[in-house]
Amino acid sequence: MTGQRRLGAGQTLNKGTLPIVARLKALQDPSHIAAGGGRVIADLHDPSPVAALLREVNETILARSLRFESAGGSSLTLDVAGRRVLRLTEATGVTGAESCLAAPALEDEHKDDLIRLMQAVAAPRHELRVSSRPMEREVDGMSVGLPVALVADLLLIELNDVPGVEVSAPPAAPPREVRRVRAAPVITPVAPVEEEVPEAVVAKAGVLGRLASGLGPALIAWLIVGGDEDGRLEGPEEMVSHLRGFLDDEATSLVLQLDLVSNERGAPVCMVLGAALIEGHCIVCARVGAAILLGVIEGDASQNLLRAWSGAMA
């Protein structure tokens, strides 16, 4: 099955789900707290402590200051956010840290030095601990830092290593830019949900269209993929194309994210994500059965959303 991975008892997962499976596995792993504080992420027998270090960074979405301390006495403190290493703020017991420490934001030119420092602190046969604290410096919106995936690639480390999962080649996907300029409103259906959709949900065909209508002009761009309303869309072509490109790339991951925020897997759900929720712009994503609506809300649509959802689901 091209582009899919098989997990244990016949469970198949698309490649895009692997980071989420890896995240779930990490959540299940019991924590071992060291005597002096900090969480042990690699013990004496760990074959690759630097992989453990990189996975910690990869697990960190919110801005945090992570201090990695080796039982050998050396340490590194990294400001990280969104799976990127923004800055090196402290280095003890290692040499060659000057250029990284002096950099207000780590850039591509620092990656070799950073890798050497990581390898020095995360040395084999030494316990490695991590402690996490709020970042002391503001996240500079212009500083993107070094993606941990880039560092991992250079070290040939698989960040989403899930034991027992066979890796197969991902499906060939057209470049994002090609999809964005595609003029015809051809909607790629969302990956079908593997479990059977309850009859009650099937009977609610048209729910997402009613939700979109209920949201009114605050919903400035949207499209529906999957289900009976597959292909319905409205809004500026550029915005809709962007949403479509996102769904092309992330449909499977999105379904899993919706499952994670739902109280029940596969249940109808509507999620809104934004800076403030009651002003500015928000992303809205709703799922009913195999259909997904993805759109952009402008302004305060919070109260309208509740009415629209209740009305659509009635």
Binding site: E250, Q257, V269, C270, A275, L277, H281
Partner: peptide, 20 residues
């Protein structure tokens, strides 16, 4: 993936709501 979409489109989100 919605966090990344929001960051790309409008900046870092600080609020979310889930209607079930």
């Amino acid at each position: 993936p919605l966090f990344a979409l929001s960051v790309e489109a409008f900046g870092e989100p600080h609020g979310s709501m889930v209607v079930g």
